[in-house]
Amino acid sequence: MSDRRAPRRGRDSRVSPGGPAGINGKRVVLPPPVPGAPDADAAPRNGQRPTGSPPPAVADQPADVWDRRVASGLAFLRRRLSGDYEVDEFGFDPDLNDHVFHPVLRLLYREWFRTEVFGIDNVPTTGAGLVVGNHSGTVALDALMLSAALHDRHPEGRHLRLLGADLVFRMPFVSELARKSGGTVACNPDAERLLRGGDLVGVFPEGFKGVGKHYSQRYKLQRFGRGGFVSAALRTGTPIIPAAIVGAEEIYPMLADIKPLARLLGLPYFPVTPTFPWLGPLGMVPLPSKWMIEFCPPIPTADMMEHADDPMVVFNLSDQVRETIQQALHRLLERRPDPFAP
């Protein structure tokens, strides 16, 4: 799998500064529509701008990389403008994800955070799975990176359906981005519906306690709430995949929380970081920490389905997941002594 990705990365990073079409066209470039010789011939020639033989007429080189990018970008625009795409009942828009969201996230995930991913084989190739992660970073970029990692590294390129706080769905624009990228409100009916439909669901049981914690508390898992995620998994017999994310704690180190301002704005916290709000909009740029994401072996729940309402079972399982993530965090931190390592 890494073999397949490596050359693609090289080619993308070389070409993408050239223009916006590179972003739109990127996904489409991978499976070359014109097989064999003309394509292999066109790509290097395009990179080097050969001067020898000029093309004889217009539209004579449909196999040329740039031409295909422009064409696929335009086709994407036309599809968007005529409404010619599909949206699922949660509002998930795969066309928009493949052509806009994931290419942008991939830039952050690869170039900015230099993310390393371990244990991707622990994520099932088909069928439902509940990915449970640790939450941190003041702004919930870790959720986006987790879904970027899964989509990028998983052999099937699976989409992670994130469950978000209702605050996310209260905010205009943000709510629609969340829905279109596959998210929905964190509640049991939605979680169970997605899991029954065979989707991969991502959840962060720490919630705001995790994202909004002080920098001194970094990599200390907070309380896991009532374990609603466990009962959703038990009711549907879905395996739980604990995921440890290292790196998000350092992107916006929270030094203080201005509580009165937070109350005034109706937010769970108002962060003060080394750069925010001092540098204004510049303070919104995340620090380029080194990220590591580990997917731990799945915890099967199919034989415990009848215990979905047993608080003892739910709490024990919730604790087991929490412990697994905490240990994985320690393991990853040992491998990454410098938070800003290359």
Binding site: P54, P55, V58, W66, D67, V70, R78
Partner: peptide, 27 residues
């Protein structure tokens, strides 16, 4: 106000225009 055929025509026209310009530049 907007027709799908118009969009498709615009798409083809823009693509064609870009190809022409590139061909001219390369020439």
């Amino acid at each position: 106000v907007v027709r799908a055929e118009q969009l498709a025509a615009a798409e083809a026209a823009i693509l064609d225009g870009i190809r022409r310009v590139r061909a001219a530049v390369e020439e």
